[in-house]
Design a protein around this nucleic acid. Sequence first.
DNA 1: TGCGTATGTCAACGCGCGTTGACAAATGGG
DNA 2: CCCATTTGTCAACGCGCGTTGACATACGCA
Lengths: 201, 201
Amino acid sequence: MSTRVDKWVIRDTPTVMRKSEITREKLLTSATRAFCVQSYSNVSLRGIAKDPGVDVALVSRYFGGKMGLFQAMLDDVFAWPEMMSGDDPVEVAIAKYTDPDTADAHMSVIRMIVVNGADPEVGDILRERLREMLVDPMLAKMGGERAAPNLAMFIAVTLGAAMVRHTLRLPGMADTQPEAYAMQLRHLIDAALRFESPASE
Amino acid sequence: MSTRVDKWVIRDTPTVMRKSEITREKLLTSATRAFCVQSYSNVSLRGIAKDPGVDVALVSRYFGGKMGLFQAMLDDVFAWPEMMSGDDPVEVAIAKYTDPDTADAHMSVIRMIVVNGADPEVGDILRERLREMLVDPMLAKMGGERAAPNLAMFIAVTLGAAMVRHTLRLPGMADTQPEAYAMQLRHLIDAALRFESPASE
DNA sequence: TGCGTATGTCAACGCGCGTTGACAAATGGG
DNA sequence: CCCATTTGTCAACGCGCGTTGACATACGCA
């Protein structure tokens, strides 16, 4: 999973599953849940560790500290193989929102971006990861730089809708059925993709 | 200005301007700037007070604490008389973004909402204020509950675009001229307002 | 001029945080 | 069985935070 340990050399005995991997995953799961709801600075390691009943000190041992844990979470969360598959990435993304089985996980990542994007400690890291693992590959699949405004608008409506529905919880978008929300979202996404930038070059 | 002092009875000598008012406004200005960039929990009173050279303790004296300062800031920031004037509120809002003179102040408020919306300490307060001072009045002007989905989508694209441009700074929306951004924004707002919810009642 | 109030300064408190290192317990190959 | 390594526990540290109360100074009216 995360290759960002790099402070300690772990000599792998590859046949057996190291016991510590279980603890690491417990922490990673709890951390992901936390960072998708509150921002880096607001999340405390003590809170992350208490939930699965793990000692706080183990975070520093296994991830090198709070920042290491955050980065390991990003590795997990941005691993979206479906998005980079052969299909049209936009269609895949819309399907992710509409399908109730995957919508939750997908929405969590959106919320993670919303919540942590403005955090002074991790904003730059998040932006960099976002570009390298999502924006740039999707741009490449959408036909290069020309699609940049449309992709940006696509992400804008996606994030904005998520914020209004889940964070601000405004009437007209938060108190409706999932299908109604999906219709609103699809309408906005269509508009974002249909936009034609004048004098593109 | 803020009527939320209410712990200390200030006997007004209305002819003269109390000296403390100057200090209060210094703190309020610095606080507004801070809360529009970082969330409540990330902002420190020491930082707010140091900027205009005011002692930290005066925050607690004049505003009753950090929360009182935040609420006083909300009073200031949500006082948008133009928005509630006779004109079409949506047109007024679009003009606010387009006009370079007012765009900055307006955008600051948007960023304040984005940044503080997910903060666990002030999220509820912000949501309540948002509804009572912006959403409900605008809904009333737009023709009642039927307009709720459109208003929610309008706010969604507004917030989302602001986040993509100013917080995430993605290519295609952050590296463009203000006019190009205004065109994108207007396109999305048009789509938001044009949406027709099926079986409205 | 004197005095009560308004205003500002300062040091200290308790709290929760991330991190560290010493130590105990469990584990597993020789 | 033994002992080196892995894994977990615990207490302590330094730090920055919001808040408080005691104290010093400035002000304005009598």
